[in-house]
């Protein structure tokens, strides 16, 4: 059986998919077990660890300050104040090199930076002092620890729960305005009311597989990624593949992502509450 899997992986998968089951025992719609934990890294201002099946991502947020730029308008966005980066080094898989960032990491990085702009964060929360002369910049760094498919979902959940875990110290500007200090006795939590609910799919022949593993991603002839927010508005929809996608399949995927809303919300809320008790 193992030899068959190695020589004809696609044929091997088809035999399973015909019976609506995957080699790892999951049904086509079944999502792998997801765990979220927040606040485990002491040195970061906010952190989280997310595991979907074997895929695991760790995320840490560092807060730094800078003076407000002259050309920065007082618009209601905190654009460019949250900078997301994902690193997929050789630690997670030997397909990645340590010298240059992979294309996968680059495209993920762009998607995550776009998604973070959609979060509902009051720009006043990122003021260092009261008048907003100095601003907080949040560097969100994600590290992939185990690459086993569906990295986008894991990264989005990790990013969101780490940001919700961020605690900022109170800022003090000295009287002459030249020096800035922080007071760690009074910490405030960054309040983010919105959520992002991601779900990715792989298309193999006419079958649509939720939460694909690495092997399934490799064999697929198309992949779909959908991100909703808590109001069930669409935040990201992505399809790439060599065969066109029909409307019915897409609708199925959209519906399935909607169904995951409550589960993801509960997972994130639970992890944030647990980290508060620590």
């Amino acid at each position: 059986m193992e030899a068959f899997q190695k020589i004809h992986p696609l044929e091997f998968y088809r035999k399973f998919l015909e019976r609506s089951v995957r080699p790892d025992g999951r049904s086509l719609q079944r999502i792998r077990n997801t765990t979220v934990s927040a606040g485990s890294i002491l040195t970061a201002d906010g952190s989280s660890f997310v595991k979907i099946g074997n895929t695991s991502v760790i995320c840490g947020v560092r807060a730094e300050i800078a003076e407000k730029q002259q050309d920065q308008t007082t618009s209601n966005t905190c654009k460019s104040q949250i900078i997301v980066n994902i690193e997929m080094g050789p630690i997670c898989s030997n397909i990645f090199s340590s010298t240059k960032p992979s294309e996968k990491a680059m495209s993920l990085c762009t998607q995550l930076n776009q998604l973070v702009q959609l979060l509902d964060i009051d720009p006043k929360q990122l003021y260092f002092d009261v008048d907003g002369k100095y601003l907080w910049y949040l560097y969100v760094d994600l590290y992939c620890l185990d690459y086993n498919g569906n990295i986008l979902d894991a990264a989005i959940i990790a990013m969101l729960s780490a940001l919700k875990n961020v605690k900022l110290p109170k800022g003090v500007v000295s009287d002459d305005g030249s020096e800035v200090y922080k007071e760690e006795d009074t910490m405030r939590t960054l309040i983010i009311n919105s959520y992002l609910i991601p779900l990715s799919f792989a298309v193999i022949d006419e079958y649509v597989l939720s939460d694909p593993s690495l092997e399934e991603e490799k064999l697929s002839n198309g992949s779909i990624s959908i991100v909703y927010n808590e109001k069930r508005e669409l935040c990201l929809q992505l399809y790439s593949g060599i065969t066109p996608l029909d409307e019915k399949t897409l609708q199925q995927c959209l519906d399935q992502t909607k169904q995951r809303t409550q589960e993801i919300k509960d997972l994130i809320d639970q992890s944030i509450n647990d980290s508060k008790d620590k």
Partner: peptide, 21 residues
């Protein structure tokens, strides 16, 4: 290695020091 997105906004940031040492 990562992609440096800091280069885009061209802002140098720093960590503020603790007030009471």
């Amino acid at each position: 290695m990562k992609i440096d997105f800091r280069a885009q906004n061209d802002i140098t940031t720093k960590i503020p020091s603790l007030k009471k040492n």
